[in-house]
Computed example of a mutant assay.
Amino acid sequence: MDSNSASGLCGAVVYGDGINANAVLECFAREQAALGYRVLGLVQRRASEDRPCAGDVILYDLAGDESYLVSQRLGEGSSCCSVDPSGVAEASIVLRRALEAPLDLLVVNKFGKLEADGGGFLAEITVAIAAGVPVLTSVHHRHADRWADYTGEFGTAIAPTPRAISLWWRQVRGVDAWRMIS
């Protein structure tokens, strides 16, 4: 990777309420893998899309059949999201294994509250960036400032569209540098 492509090495699909960034990320990752790129990491799905905050949140290993429950079951009637840090810690093995393998792109399901507070998958994202491995993630707009502060010159905000992600990916692979794609 040349020095021009280091800028924007970590792309984040910035989304708001009502946008399923998880589906966009997974679709892009699977398309690139089908094209022959070595795409490894984690994608997120909800066990029930009709309960956006109270349903189980599950991370899936792009390279296999492993899955990890990363939400706490708060009980019937609960309407708040509650990530389970122990589930995230368990799932981090997928990212660490990916970073030991030859890969073209590391997919990290989300830069969320845990990462914004210095935990979650932040260590794995840091290792990937330091190693020059492109990282694709998503970030809710409420954490976008923390993500931008963390990634600095290595981060690029991406609109939640397949076209915008594809443009970022082409950029990372060697075209000219830029900061925001829409």
Score class of each variant (00 low, 15 high):
Met1Leu: 14
Asp2Gly: 10
Ser7Pro: 10
Ser7Arg: 15
Gly11Phe: 01
Val14Ile: 12
Tyr15Met: 09
Tyr15Glu: 09
Tyr15Phe: 14
Asn20Tyr: 11
Ala21Tyr: 03
Asn22Gln: 07
Val24Tyr: 04
Leu25Asp: 13
Cys27Arg: 15
Gln32His: 13
Arg38Lys: 13
Arg38Cys: 05
Leu40Ser: 09
Gly41Cys: 12
Gly41Pro: 10
Leu42Tyr: 01
Arg45Lys: 15
Ala47Leu: 06
Arg51Cys: 15
Pro52Val: 10
Ala54Ile: 13
Gly55Arg: 08
Gly55Ile: 04
Gly64Gln: 08
Asp65Val: 06
Asp65Tyr: 01
Tyr68Arg: 12
Gln72Gly: 14
Arg73Ala: 04
Gly77His: 13
Gly87Trp: 01
Val88Trp: 00
Val88Asn: 00
Ala89Met: 05
Ile93Met: 15
Ala101His: 14
Leu103Trp: 14
Leu105Lys: 04
Leu105Thr: 03
Leu105Phe: 11
Phe111Asp: 00
Glu115Gln: 01
Ala116Asp: 02
Gly120Thr: 04
Leu122Met: 03
Ala128Asn: 07
Gly132Asn: 04
Pro134Val: 11
Thr137Trp: 01
Ser138Leu: 02
His141Thr: 05
His141Ser: 07
Ala144Pro: 05
Ala144Lys: 06
Trp147Arg: 01
Ala159Met: 01
Trp169Asn: 05
Trp169Met: 07
Gln171Thr: 06
Gln171Arg: 09
Arg173Gly: 04
Asp176Tyr: 04
Asp176Glu: 04
Ser182Glu: 11
